[in-house]
Design a protein around this nucleic acid. Structure first.
Length: 586
RNA sequence: GAUCCCGUAGCUCAGUUGGAUAGAGCAUCUGCCUUCUAAGCAGAGGGUCGCAGGUUCAAAUCCUGCCGGGAUCGCCA
């Protein structure tokens, strides 16, 4: 149900016909052309650039090709007129019945309108959040989390087979710090005076309950143990509690994952995926022993010039080859990530998407190199970088610091601002753009937040349907009933404009999904809401344009069909963004 | 030293993967509530799309080089 791709198909057919008739050279290969909504309404409903793209190869004037195409396409019963314009555009204008049929189709498809067909594109994996399990999530994590979640929703809606994944960094040094910090809280819970938390350990109060739980479970038994004995116990326990907390935080934002993949599991239970992955690379001749050059641009007194195991990532466009083992023989973080992506590929994913924070951009070339090396290019990886969120309080920049106590948790923000505004705010910007998040603005003047504008449009639609039932007893406003209505009175330019925006929805979903850009949907919904609000208010000046015409059942049903279709699309869109579509504003 | 992101109206940002006369919100000014929810609507003013070249029927969009702002660089995670 995408009129743009339908027109593209018609044009392709027409071009083939022109070839077999000899109007166009028979050996002409058909290039990629577009059927798109023109910016200027006077250019019709759909502009086709086929003639322009084709002209050179066909050795013909674009306008001549356009005229020939026009003759072929014009006969179709749903076309009001076709004009050849400008350098050779084909501007197609539809009859109103096309828009009427579209409203019916939307009511018919309901929440599935705009959804893609199930695609035969292979399994797709979206990895997002992946915050260290060492404390509660803070606002900085918020953006990547919301972005990844909305992107996954969007891809599901577009028809992809999506797995949402969280990589738990539970194997590095920082989880040992977590364990020592929790151990201190454990001793505290047993009545010991632990004084100030030493530098280098996590000072947050959130570890107190962990200490208390440890005390309850183990009594004094851990106190007498040497560190190498209690550390694994406390670490495992603390990580589990931290992950529970993080999942809870994510749930507050309506975010869920299908798979939580543990970094530690790469080397547990007798398996060693890291070794296997490196072996795989070795067989491809991409592993060698060698030295790296000292990094330029900053002093590093601890730089050690030594031979080490390296991955030849430069063969895939990276700046330098990358180390896989530390001087003590243990694997680097990167080695784990090599194995993790090796595992993703083994699980059959053809498309990988990683959502990274801006602080990880330097990591992208090497991880892309890994995927390219291991997949033999059968799989692709797109790394989406979400830029920094700059925090403001009443216009003043605001720095977060754990020690200074100005640490803002994700939970604080959600509790204060609300889930929907936070989500919409994070998505109402493309991911590469830095985002200013002002607490005062979002909390105190929340009317400025576009989320309310869009939600209001949905609530307004719901309200109209409610009022209609009240004013016209016995009226059936179900999608099925409204789909039967005579829609021929829908001829007002505002009404047709609204339908045209609805017609653009499937195309938008398609584009946003393949570009991995959920923000396009947030902007689209804003525009759609605007068109609805506009049409609504026109009813104030021109009562005959109101949606409810209490003395005219035919007109009312037609208008209600339009509003129900609009409501359907807004709801679908908001659901993808993970934002509620309320039936009334409070 | 290198890489990545950004640069579009006074401010914050879109710009449908290269389309025709560049858009929205905020701010400023002018109007619209006896009315299906004014959390709304209509209108006005406001532009060298950072700069300079290049590619082509067509460039804010692609390529090259500069300028300005931000981020990153490790045997950390």
């Amino acid at each position: 149900m995408n009129i743009f791709s339908e027109v593209e198909a018609r044009v392709s057919t027409a071009l083939e016909a022109l070839k077999s008739e000899g109007t166009l050279p028979a050996d002409l290969s058909l290039p990629v052309f577009d059927a798109e909504p023109p910016r200027d309404p006077s250019h019709g409903d759909i502009a086709v650039n086929a003639a322009l793209v084709l002209a050179k190869a066909a050795k013909m004037k674009p306008r001549d090709i356009a005229e020939a195409l026009k003759a072929k396409l014009e006969a179709h019963s749903d076309i009001a007129k076709i004009e050849v314009a400008g350098p050779g555009f084909l501007n197609i204008t539809f009859k109103d019945e096309v828009w009427h049929n579209l409203v019916r189709a939307i009511l018919n498809f309901g929440g599935r309108y705009g959804a893609g067909p199930v695609r035969d594109a292979g399994k797709l994996n979206v990895e997002y959040v992946s915050a260290n399990p060492t404390g509660p999530m803070h606002v900085g994590h918020c953006r990547g989390a919301v972005f990844g979640d909305a992107l996954a929703n969007l891809l599901v809606f577009a028809g992809y087979d999506v797995t949402r994944e969280y990589y738990i960094n539970d194997a590095g040094g920082q989880v040992n710090v977590l364990a020592r910090s929790a151990y201190l809280r454990y001793r505290e819970a047993l009545g010991e005076d632990i004084g100030a938390i030493p530098e280098g350990l996590y000072p947050g109060d959130y570890l107190k309950p962990v200490g208390e739980a440890l005390a309850e479970q183990h009594g004094h038994s851990l106190v007498s143990m040497p560190e190498e004995q209690w550390l694994p116990i406390v670490r495992a326990f603390a990580i589990e509690r931290m992950m529970a907390m993080i999942k809870d935080d994510l749930a507050a934002l309506n975010i869920r994952h299908d798979v939580f993949f543990s970094e530690a599991s790469l080397q547990s239970g007798g398996a060693d995926l890291i070794k296997a992955a490196i072996e795989e690379l070795r067989q491809k001749g991409l592993i060698y022993e060698g030295k790296l050059e000292k990094p330029k641009g900053h002093d590093d007194d601890e730089w050690e010039d030594r031979v080490q195991t390296l991955f030849k990532s430069t063969a895939f466009g990276d700046d330098e080859d990358r180390a896989l083992q530390k001087s003590d023989g243990s694997y680097t973080y990167f080695a784990g990530d090599v194995a993790y992506h090796y595992d993703k590929l083994r699980r059959g994913f053809r498309h990988l998407i990683n959502v990274f924070g801006a602080d990880h951009v330097g990591y992208i070339p090497r991880i892309k190199a890994v995927v390219a090396a291991l997949s033999d290019k059968y799989a692709d990886l797109d790394v989406k970088v979400v830029q920094l969120v700059r925090l403001f309080k009443a216009g003043e920049p605001f720095k977060m610091s754990k020690r200074a106590g100005t640490f803002v948790t994700l939970r604080d923000v959600v509790d204060e601002v609300g889930r929907d505004p936070v989500r919409y705010m994070m998505l109402y910007r493309k991911n590469q753009e830095t985002l200013d998040f002002d607490f005062a603005k979002v909390t105190e003047q929340s009317k400025d937040n576009p989320v309310f504008y869009v939600q209001y449009a949905h609530a307004r639609s719901a309200s109209v349907l409610r009022n209609a039932i009240e004013q016209i007893p016995g009226l059936d406003v179900s999608n099925a009933a409204l789909g039967e209505a005579d829609l021929s009175i829908l001829t007002d330019p505002g009404e047709i404009d609204l339908v045209k925006r609805l017609a653009a929805f499937p195309r938008l979903i398609d584009g946003a999904a393949s570009a991995h850009e959920p923000h396009r949907l947030a902007f689209y919904l804003y525009d759609l809401a605007s068109a609805l609000h506009s049409q609504w208010t026109r009813g104030n000046d021109s009562p005959h344009l109101r949606f409810i015409q209490s003395n005219d059942g035919v007109a009312t049903s037609a208008r209600l069909a339009l509003i129900a279709a609009t409501k359907t699309v807004i709801k679908s869109g908001l659901e993808i963004l993970g934002v509620e579509a309320p039936d009334a504003m409070r």
